[in-house]
Lab assay of single mutants.
Amino acid sequence: HDTTVHINGLRIEVHGASEEILKWIEEAARRGVEAEEIKRWVEEALK
């Protein structure tokens, strides 16, 4: 999927993410993980 995830006011563009990654992002956000940190993880995961 190409999608934009909104976390604590930060937009994260996610290209080619699976449902699993999207669920993981939402879970991390709920746990209060910094949005910048999530963004870094997602970029690494999608390389």
Rank of each mutant, 00 (worst) to 15 (best):
E43D: 10
E13G: 02
T4L: 10
A17L: 13
H15D: 12
E20K: 09
K23H: 09
I7A: 05
A35Q: 05
A29Y: 14
I21G: 00
G32I: 01
D2H: 14
R40P: 00
V5W: 03
E34P: 15
V42Q: 01
G16E: 05
K23N: 06
G9A: 03
R30P: 03
G16L: 08
H15C: 08
L10K: 02
V14G: 04
L22V: 07
L46H: 02
V33Q: 04
K39N: 05
A17W: 08
R11M: 15
E34G: 13
E34A: 15
R11E: 14
E27V: 03
E37M: 08
W41C: 06
W41P: 00
H1C: 06
L22E: 01
A28M: 14
K47D: 06
T4F: 13
H6D: 11
V42A: 03
H1Y: 14
I25E: 00
K39G: 05
S18K: 05
W24D: 00
G16N: 10
A45H: 11
S18D: 09
V14H: 03
I38N: 00
W41K: 05
R31N: 15
H15M: 12
E19I: 13
L10H: 08
A17N: 05
R40S: 08
E27N: 06
K23P: 00
K47C: 06
V42S: 00
R40F: 06
R11L: 14
E43G: 06
E43T: 09
D2C: 14
L22F: 07
A17P: 05
A28N: 02
N8C: 15
R11I: 15
E36K: 08
E37H: 08
R40H: 08
R30A: 15
E36C: 06
I7Q: 03
I12N: 02
I21P: 00
E44G: 06
I7G: 03
E19M: 13
V42W: 02
L10C: 08
L22K: 04
T4I: 15
R30G: 14
E26K: 08
E13Q: 05
S18Q: 05
K39P: 01
E36V: 09
I21D: 01
I12F: 10
E44V: 08
L10N: 07
T3A: 13
H6G: 04
D2Y: 14
G9Y: 01
A29C: 12
H1K: 14
N8D: 12
E36F: 08
R30F: 11
G9H: 03
